[in-house]
Design a protein around this nucleic acid. Structure first.
Lengths: 211, 211
DNA sequence: CGCAAACTTGCACATCGTGCAATACTGCAT
DNA sequence: ATGCAGTATTGCACGATGTGCAAGTTTGCG
């Protein structure tokens, strides 16, 4: 009965990982991060303390869980296929739009993570660090799409703006969820961009082209 | 002989703080962050371990030292005085330009901190976290300058771009320092911006204005 | 000089994170 | 099914981190 040949072991590991993550998140939400000890999390998840550290390197990592990849492999390929001539902004939106990214995720868990990241500076720090890694990844993608050997300043700038918009869209969605119920409209990056573009161009465009 | 009435105590504290910072930085540079223990730092700085934690909350904080403020109070006031109609980008540059900010700083220490932040992920995480706080501060300044009650999306976007440019300028300066000697030209934000503007507008401007 | 406030220090304690070796379990081939 | 090889779990020991507390020490000021 090995219908899932490459699977029973993996499944158990994944389950343990999810149990630890859920337990850490729930406890942090209930009692605050400082009151959460690895020991308590392990009691909840029914594993030994030593095993905990085989899965996560700290309780903060356990609370946040594994970082999601930057878009699906297909989405990344499609983005690269756009090439230097494509509509960069539109494709960035397609790659990062929270409405799409959130589709396959557990929204409840995401909302909890966002709430915790606001409350607990240590979680915020880790979150920002991970976001920064994603940002660098996007800068590299932009450079590759443009045929550049390494990401230059403008690539980093584009990535920074994109993540600022995503961050803002997620915050708006989160705030809306807290006030108007759990099922607020999924945020659209395009909308956020449209609302921003005017002020944005106002900041960047009017500069003279220098001779 | 109390020429420095409000001072001997303060001076001693400042000296101890500087000794701890210098010791932590030097040790991390020589032996790597993991090999640095609080105990070793304290031996170097000639204070007790307990006292160390009266000054810094972790060895990472000790290595990085205290975060500098975002511009001088005068520079901040000048930035706000620009008002909604002023040249936002020019004033952001004036506020953040590394060439100006670095003027009053210990460049040797700064270069060491940047090197360490590249080597040690834990230091990078802390550095990014601090940078993010600065970014939020700038977004708030932009909002206030515009007469907005709270920083909206475009303010955050402007701040994100500004810091992406600053970060890039600092990296360029740092890389240049490592190759062409310790006294590389101080980076100019304006130059970085000029080099970026074309690609940037290429990314943002060509989008249709939607009816 | 001498008191009050602030700084330093030692000590105890809970927690974190890792290396190591023993044990238990899973997958696979016989 | 049975046993072997690889992998996961666990306990243990240990060094390091960070904090509360209370005693000692230094500074500022009358």
């Amino acid at each position: 009965m090995q219908g899932s040949s490459p699977g029973l072991r993996e499944a158990k590991k994944a389950a343990t990982r999810r149990r630890l993550n859920a337990a850490a998140r729930a406890l942090a939400l209930r009692d605050g991060l400082d009151a959460v000890t690895v020991e308590r999390v392990c009691a909840e998840a029914e594993v030994s303390v030593r095993t905990f550290f085989n899965y996560f390197e700290s309780k903060e990592h356990a609370v946040l869980g594994d970082p999601p990849p930057l878009g699906t492999p297909e989405a990344r390929a499609a983005f690269l296929a756009g090439g230097p001539g494509g509509d960069l902004l539109a494709d960035v939106i397609a790659l990062l739009d929270p409405a799409a990214v959130l589709a396959g995720e557990d929204r409840e868990a995401l909302a909890q993570v966002m709430l915790l990241s606001q409350r607990e500076p240590r979680l915020l720090a880790l979150q920002i660090f991970r976001l920064n890694a994603h940002q660098d990844e996007l800068a590299a993608l932009v450079a590759e799409r443009r045929g550049l050997p390494a990401p230059e300043t403008s690539c980093h700038a584009v990535a920074a703006v994109a993540f600022a918009l995503v961050h803002r869209a997620c915050r708006d969605w989160f705030d809306a969820s807290r006030t108007s119920g759990a099922d607020a409209v999924p945020p659209s990056l395009q909308d956020v961009l449209d609302a921003t573009r005017e002020a944005f161009l106002g900041a960047l465009a009017p500069a003279p082209t220098r001779s």
